[in-house]
């Protein structure tokens, strides 16, 4: 009985973590689908979003939830800027060169965060929330809001991808780059949009992660591996698969703490990812290998 309670409690944490991972993994998957490389600076883009949101709150004194839109604007602008200044210039060569570049960009972004905000730890709000109790289960109000925000962001993205001309063009380009070219879809505009959306989603993940715990310069890098695991599990290049991937990885990471040291949570994600790579490398939903 106690085990069941623990399991339920951890599942709640798992869903919260899963919704954060999902936002990151969708971005990674979209960028892979269009630009064909694993974006290693994605975690640090999350960090940038979280910190921009924090500064916006500090400057304006607005309620905590304003960090979300502010961070999204900040990280989207950062992503676009990085693409215009760096990635765009090396896109013509092999995609793996972009991979090296993005690895360097990860360190640059993290160092810029350290430079501006220093090494200390921040929180969005110092208020202590009184948890809700349902039987033996406790629910922290923030967790409900985090899940709700993630659902809203994913729903908005879904509407964009299925209802708008540019959204459909993004899916088309991810499906078949050569055909998109001969169809007259303007690749450069779609790529810019991909960075804007990927950056905004990363910031969404970063701000929600910051609300769940605290802000540190390495918060994004530390979660990059689970994010990649979620993207691979869902089939890399498949944004919708990333939702399932994110939830599975999130749940597995939290529930694993019943059996092993919590500090091994990222390793759990890694082990699942390796298992997927061995058994079904295209992911659950057949990604673009």
């Amino acid at each position: 009985m106690e085990l069941l309670v623990d399991l339920l409690q951890l599942s709640i944490y798992g869903i919260v973590l899963g919704s954060i991972l999902t936002l990151g993994a969708i971005g990674v998957s979209m960028i892979f689908g269009i630009l064909r490389f694993a974006h290693f600076a994605h975690g640090d883009l999350m960090t940038v979003g979280a910190y921009v949101g924090f500064s916006f709150l500090a400057l304006t004194g607005l309620p905590v939830w304003w960090a979300l839109p502010a961070g999204m604007v900040g990280a989207a602008a950062t992503a676009l800027l990085v693409d215009r200044i760096v990635y765009q210039r090396i896109r013509r060569t092999q995609p793996v060169i972009l991979l090296i570049s993005s690895f360097g960009m990860a360190l640059i972004l993290r160092s810029v965060v350290q430079l501006i905000w220093g090494p200390q730890v921040y929180s969005y709000s110092s208020d202590i929330q009184r948890p809700w109790r349902i039987g033996d289960i406790t629910i922290i109000p923030n967790h409900v809001w985090i899940l709700l925000a993630a659902v809203l962001i994913v729903a908005a993205l879904h509407l964009f991808l299925t209802r708008t001309r540019m959204g459909k063009a993004m899916r088309a380009m991810s499906d078949n780059m050569d055909l998109a070219l001969v169809t007259g879809i303007p690749a450069e505009r779609v790529i810019m949009l991909t960075w804007l959306l990927g950056g905004a989603l990363a910031a969404g993940a970063g701000v929600l992660l910051g609300m769940d715990s605290r802000l540190t310069p390495t918060m994004g890098w530390n979660i990059l591996l689970p994010v990649f695991a979620a993207a691979i599990l869902g089939g890399i290049g498949r944004p919708y698969g990333a939702i399932a991937g994110g939830m599975i990885i999130g749940l597995a990471m939290e529930i694993s703490t019943l059996f092993i040291e919590p500090s091994y949570k990222p390793a759990v994600a890694f082990v699942i990812m390796v298992a997927v790579l061995i058994v079904r490398p295209q992911g659950i939903f057949k990604g673009t290998l």
Partner: peptide
């Protein structure tokens, strides 16, 4: 395409995850 020339490649000539109608819409992007 803007000048009124259209081209259909031999292989991989549809967007597989898009619906039929979305494929057509892309033609007039």
């Amino acid at each position: 395409v803007r000048r009124g020339v259209a081209y259909v490649p031999q292989e991989r000539n549809v967007f597989p995850s898009l619906t039929v109608q979305e494929n057509l819409e892309m033609g007039a992007f």
